[in-house]
């Protein structure tokens, strides 16, 4: 075979190159390592929604989960703004400052609890690094819920704040469902 781009290539060397095999199989199967990285990448994509390039090629469910976290982040920021004190004093939230569950939020909490139990049962079989990523994301969501509920406790009549609280809960449930999907991938 001639190669017009290498006219000065020594004919003997050219012949040797032409004899090189086009395929050389790896000495070990690399797919297991690659598969693990793909799964880990999916998890990271859920936790890092700002990486738009990754989100674009994600399956629909993961893209939705990533979008959910964007909403959660926005919600947390908004509720933080809405719950800001009149002075510049930093408000430290604690459980006593949070209003007790209103009836409408109980069903959200129950669903979230069931999904959390399901995920924790699967988490034992997951790679610890994966669990750490998911749990870190969960802490972010829970923090957003705490802040949103604190704002609601201060202004329980506000339909806008209540709507945000419910939205954050819905995103938590959605995230937990996706986290369970990720965990199931590792069971296959």
């Amino acid at each position: 075979m001639t190669d017009p781009r290498t006219p000065d290539l020594d004919p003997a060397l050219r012949a040797r190159i032409a004899d090189l095999p086009a395929e050389v199989m790896p000495e070990r199967d690399l797919w297991g390592d690659i598969r693990a990285r793909l799964d880990a990448d999916r998890v990271r994509s859920i936790a890092a929604p700002n990486q738009a390039a990754r989100v674009r090629r994600l399956p629909t469910w993961a893209a939705r989960a990533a979008a959910a976290l964007v909403l959660i982040a926005g919600t947390a920021t908004l509720t933080r703004w809405m719950s800001r004190p009149a002075t510049t004093t930093v408000v430290v939230l604690d459980s006593a400052a949070v209003a007790p569950s209103t009836e409408g939020l109980v069903s959200y909490e129950r669903s979230a609890e069931e999904l959390t139990v399901a995920f924790e049962a699967r988490a034992a079989r997951l790679d610890p690094a994966t669990v750490e990523v998911l749990e870190r994301s969960m802490r972010t969501i829970d923090s957003a819920i705490t802040e949103a509920r604190a704002a609601l406790a201060r202004d329980p009549a506000s339909p806008a704040i209540r709507g945000y609280v419910e939205a954050v809960y819905r995103q938590k449930i959605d995230f937990l469902r996706r986290a369970n999907d990720v965990a199931r991938l590792w069971e296959l």
Partner: peptide, 10 residues
């Protein structure tokens, strides 16, 4: 990509 001495498989 230009022609190569080690070709692609069919």
């Amino acid at each position: 990509m230009p022609p190569a001495l080690v070709t692609h498989l069919p």
